[in-house]
Amino acid sequence: MSEKQVFIFGAGYSGKAFARAGKAFARPKQGAAMILGTTRSSEKFEALRQAGIAPLLFDGALTDEIGDALNKTTHLVISVAPEEAGDPVLNAAREAIARMPALEWIGYLSTVGVYGDHGGAWVDETARCRPVSKRSVMRVEAEQDWLRLGGEIGRPVAILRLSGIYGPGRNALVNLENGTARRLVKPGQVFNRIHCDDIAGALWQLIEANTGGIFNVTDDLPAPPQDVVAYAASLMGVTPPPGIPFDAAQLSPMARSFYGENKRVANAAIKAAGYRFRFPDYRAAFDHMWASGDWRDGEARSPMKRG
């Protein structure tokens, strides 16, 4: 197998986790894959470099530098949200992507929001997409655009539908420490979640085999959000914030819209593709983050002092 070069459009939180995980997937004779990634701000270059990503600027226009990188890229990952005018990457670089001489595989990071509301019922990849929010409607359209392009150029496309992303620096432990944690209670409401390390692992699993298809990348335990905060508080040894009835809560329109979608998302397809979750549920992940001390920003630290 030839040496891999991965190009990430939109190398943010998940992209950096993917790059950090790359060393675990390095082959002895090949070493780690070359990983390049875009950001909208040069101020973020150093953070990308520290994660193992060669940074490039992308503000919606294809540059010569990006074009040169795409010509050597074997695996393309897209983690850029669609806009009213369509997918920004396809709008800027569709023709360049269609001509990529070394391209073997495309991965598109989407969201389980494409399923919409299913009244708390289980859904898998065969469920009909009935998105509620405009952003999820645009996600469905973007998924179809990428699948269509893959069919046109004869390359596998993997659509990864992600649930609520958390990990170091983004979790209920951090929210409890900084005083922003809330326990909103809406009877019957559940959400799935996914640790950023499992997004990274699932991506590498699909890349290694050049596997295409649609995959829910989500944990095994859809749970009420207030339970997650309570569990984090129990690890810290602090009193959880009081429950707030959902109807009485002051929320932004976007935050309120999340609670308008209630479903349990199954993940059998990504498991059938060979992936085994590092953190199958939030309890396992929080136990690890608290014990290792990496819950703040990814660096090993001592657990928060109590008292």
Rank of each mutant, 00 (worst) to 15 (best):
I165W: 00
E84K: 13
L48Y: 07
R170T: 06
G293Y: 00
G188N: 04
L56Q: 14
D68F: 14
I270L: 11
G37L: 03
K186P: 03
D287M: 11
P241N: 05
G113Y: 07
N210S: 15
M100E: 14
E177H: 15
P303Q: 00
A255G: 04
R278M: 03
G151N: 11
G188R: 04
I165R: 09
P187L: 10
E141P: 00
G15E: 00
M289C: 01
I78A: 09
A127Y: 09
E299R: 13
A26S: 12
A102Q: 05
C196K: 11
I270P: 05
G120H: 07
A51P: 10
Y282N: 04
F277A: 13
V185Y: 14
A54F: 03
P101D: 05
P88G: 11
A200L: 12
M304W: 06
E84L: 11
R296L: 09
Y13L: 11
F258E: 02
L90E: 13
R99E: 15
G274P: 03
L160P: 02
A51G: 11
M236C: 03
T38I: 02
R193H: 15
L90I: 07
E177Q: 15
A19R: 07
R301K: 12
I270W: 04
R155S: 08
G12K: 05
M138Y: 11
D281K: 01
L206W: 15
A266P: 00
G119W: 02
L251W: 05
D197P: 02
A51N: 11
A96N: 05
R256G: 09
P55T: 14
N267Q: 03
N178Y: 02
A223D: 06
L160Q: 05
A202Y: 06
Y282A: 02
T63H: 10
E261R: 02
R161T: 14
R276L: 11
D117C: 04
S234R: 13
T218E: 02
S42H: 05
I106L: 12
A285C: 00
E83W: 02
D297A: 10
V190K: 13
A121V: 01
S133E: 14
Q5A: 08
A11K: 10
S41Q: 14
H75A: 08
P303W: 00
P245G: 01
I106Q: 04
A102K: 08
I153A: 06
E46M: 05
F286P: 00
V80P: 07
A32D: 04
E46S: 14
V137F: 03
F9C: 08
R283M: 13
G120F: 02
T180W: 05
N210G: 10
A232F: 07
D281Q: 04
R306K: 10
P82E: 11
N71R: 15
L162C: 09
S292V: 07
I35P: 01
L62R: 14
V229L: 02
T74A: 10
E177G: 15
E43G: 12
I106G: 06
K23N: 01
Y108H: 10
K134H: 07
I214V: 15
R161N: 13
G119I: 04
W295I: 03
G86V: 07
A284I: 06
E299W: 08
A142E: 06
I199R: 12
V185L: 11
E299I: 12
Y166K: 00
F18N: 02
T74Y: 14
A202R: 05
A233E: 07
T74S: 15
Y231E: 10
D87P: 12
G274S: 08
G10S: 04
G86N: 10
R155V: 15
G31K: 01
F7M: 01
E46G: 10
